[in-house]
Design a protein around this nucleic acid. Structure first.
Ligand SMILES: [Mn+2]
Ligand SMILES: [Mn+2]
Ligand SMILES: [Mn+2]
Ligand SMILES: [Mn+2]
Lengths: 239, 239
DNA sequence: TCTGAAACTTAGACTAGTCTAATCTTTGCC
DNA sequence: GGCAAAGATTAGACTAGTCTAAGTTTCAGA
């Protein structure tokens, strides 16, 4: 064993952890993450991404096809899911135990995720009762690296007449999150689609059971991910 | 305003924050912190310290007298006390809210102190009732940067017969802390010094009120910082 | 007063991560 | 099928932080 050999498994740096998360989010369902999309998500210049991509593929965390994009290896995916678990448990802990609102929580978790130990995360998860979803409805990966894959439909694409449960809110923007909260649009809410205007027009919904109407423009409707609710009529299960 | 000018007040890096804390701890009561002591405390080589010292004095956080040592400026002291507040609130929060024992808490706080926001620290402090002391009895600086300066005597130097209150435990070593906890030697405990053997020998104490005896070697006794308790006899205040 | 050891600084190299400017590749469109 | 624009990579520079090796300063003791 030569003293000059690099440490075989050095701990990942803050930057590397954020790159892996970004690549995970951008390469859903087996696709490639593009250099420019990673750069935009992390707010760095594209050449910075090219440089990091080189290092990450040398260490076996990603697969790089030049001019095509990158994908996580199994090892890289494990590391990404670990960070996502940390991030989402932190978000939930901050909202439930320390009074954060769901808009402010993302920025704080973005920093803390790199500093917490496994032990701290598991203690937080225990305090919270080993939760399944974060404040925005996103599934929390298990400590073993499993994550729920739900088929959800965006409110902008849901059919008129559909009865839906709002499951996930697909933004971290504090202003948009605050607006959704004001409108009562938080994960778990039931609603029916009552109208959609043509030419990318707004969707009108009625909250269940209050019946309160809401009009949601396409930009925001695309952020509201819903599950179709089987319509149960007076205790009769649908067939 | 030229775009080429460096940001006037960039946020401090993790390294800088740890250097400032180390210098604070090493330059108590107006003295100088020595390069080699800073290096030992941070586990870096002395030339790394010389390099950092140059940068820190250029940014006005410390004063450097070559070959003599360094001192914090007012600005550097403010920054150091802010980090110490963070560290101690984190330690207390982790022990009181998340079930950490006082041995494991230091390493976790050492990382988190660089990642938490002011808002998070103040929320934690609020949850804890704006506490004055951390789990090891160390005073927590206020948000305004005030810190209590107590005159304490080490158990190794206290006179035989003295009645003392254990106030601070001056180590972060998990093994030593665990041992102290086993022996019932935690901040707040009352005791009397019953014996001291010569030639740097052990100190024998009796816990109050149980009377249980403990024998403490000099190395550990030097870590136990105590306050003299005015001896009140059956309700008679001492004159 | 000299001298040698300890402490400190300087010199020079290296890594991680970032940037701008210049140079490929790919691809949609005429 | 050719070409221009978009996207990606390479080239080269820079900062922060670390190291080892080599020189400089201080100071206690002979
Ligand atoms: Mn992050
Ligand atoms: Mn979230
Ligand atoms: Mn630290
Ligand atoms: Mn402490």
């Amino acid at each position: 064993m030569h003293a000059t050999l690099r440490d075989a498994n050095p701990p990942l740096t803050r930057s590397v952890e954020d790159y892996l998360k970004a690549i995970y989010h951008l390469s859903n369902q087996g696709g490639f993450a593009a250099t420019s999309d990673i750069a935009a998500m992390l707010e760095v210049a594209p050449p910075s991404v090219s440089g990091m991509v080189k290092r990450l593929s040398e260490t076996g965390l990603i697969e790089h096809v030049p001019y095509r994009g990158v994908q996580l290896t199994a090892q890289g995916r494990r590391a990404a899911l670990k960070m996502i678990r940390r991030h989402r448990i932190l978000e939930l802990y901050l909202t439930q135990q320390l009074g954060y609102d769901w808009g402010g929580v993302h920025a704080e978790a973005e920093q803390l995720e790199h500093a917490v130990s496994d032990e701290l995360i598991e203690r937080m998860a225990g305090t919270l009762g080993n939760p399944q979803y974060d404040p925005h409805g996103d599934p929390i990966p298990t400590a073993a690296g499993e994550i729920e894959e739900a088929e959800l439909v965006s409110l902008a694409e849901a059919g008129v007449g559909a009865k839906l449960e709002l499951r996930q809110v697909g933004t971290q923007d504090p202003a948009r999150l605050r607006y959704f909260a004001e409108q009562g649009l938080t994960p778990g809410v039931l609603l029916t689609v009552t109208d959609r205007q043509p030419f990318n027009g707004p969707t009108t919904i009625a909250l269940v059971p209050s019946g309160d109407p809401r009009v949601v423009g396409r930009e925001l409707a695309l952020l509201l991910w819903c599950r179709e609710v089987p319509v149960e009529q007076h205790g009769h299960a649908s067939h």
